[in-house]
Design a protein around this nucleic acid. Sequence first.
DNA 1: TATTGTTATACTCTATAACTATA
DNA 2: TATAGTTATAGAGTATAACAATA
Lengths: 155, 155
Amino acid sequence: MKPETAPDPRDMTAEIEFGGLEDSCGFLITIAQVYVFEQFHEVLGKYGIRPGSMSALIIIGRNPGIRHGALADALRIKLAHMTKMLKSLESEGLVRRTAPPHDRRIVEVHLTDKGKRYVAENAPRLFEHDSSRPDGLTAAEKKRFIKLLRKFSGL
Amino acid sequence: MKPETAPDPRDMTAEIEFGGLEDSCGFLITIAQVYVFEQFHEVLGKYGIRPGSMSALIIIGRNPGIRHGALADALRIKLAHMTKMLKSLESEGLVRRTAPPHDRRIVEVHLTDKGKRYVAENAPRLFEHDSSRPDGLTAAEKKRFIKLLRKFSGL
DNA sequence: TATTGTTATACTCTATAACTATA
DNA sequence: TATAGTTATAGAGTATAACAATA
């Protein structure tokens, strides 16, 4: 990112011009997201954990009996996708889904014992990875970054 | 996000516990990214523009003759996907792809006149949308946020 | 042999809408 | 009629690896 450098795409040492995208939150968040996933798979892939289902399991563990809809809202994914993910986690024996008697439309989700062991083993790996990712931010910057990210998303 | 509230997923007014994810850069960036795409499609969908190809066209416009590989690096997407995207943009008449005589392995990309008009018309819409997105950040916060995002991604 | 790009395949994630069951 | 979730289908994005052409 050197705006003063004349762009010459044939010169491999030349930086390319981003034409304003370097100041676009949307573009930069997309780029950051690619980096996050890349690092996640590189470091945590060997344990077979994936970002989406790991987040779901962590939230289910902290909110026993949470409904499909509430979980979908929390993870910002569509209910249809949530169903697929939870049925998959159920078939792996990590979660249990039950319809309460008072409203049989609802599906409540709990971790199984296997699911609890899975979270106890893998959640620390996720958090350790997240805080040690080589992202070039100082501790103070990371703190500010997290606050801004939360405010940005209305979380 | 109220850690002091007892979690009760059946009470719709209760906040859910994120169990540490609320302090994870990776999780928060994923959530932010969902918000960015959602807003993008809501506001700019009617013009038929999409985030990936719009970014590509903007960068091509600013770096005439840029190679497939350099563009893929800039957008953090795989070369195989870049090829698909550029062939699609070529079939829409927005870009021209040519192999230079001095190294016939290379493919250089330029905007066509139609592509230039397309960018002239739609890039301002993208930037206007990006700066006016209702993300709750003040101008000063947005500035700091952009700097942190760039540092985070090594851009 | 190494580099640049292409093709093919498969998998994940997402969007949408029609559907079932229940309230 | 409205709500919670399910199913089916299609599309976008991505990963991977095998491939062709050129250097």
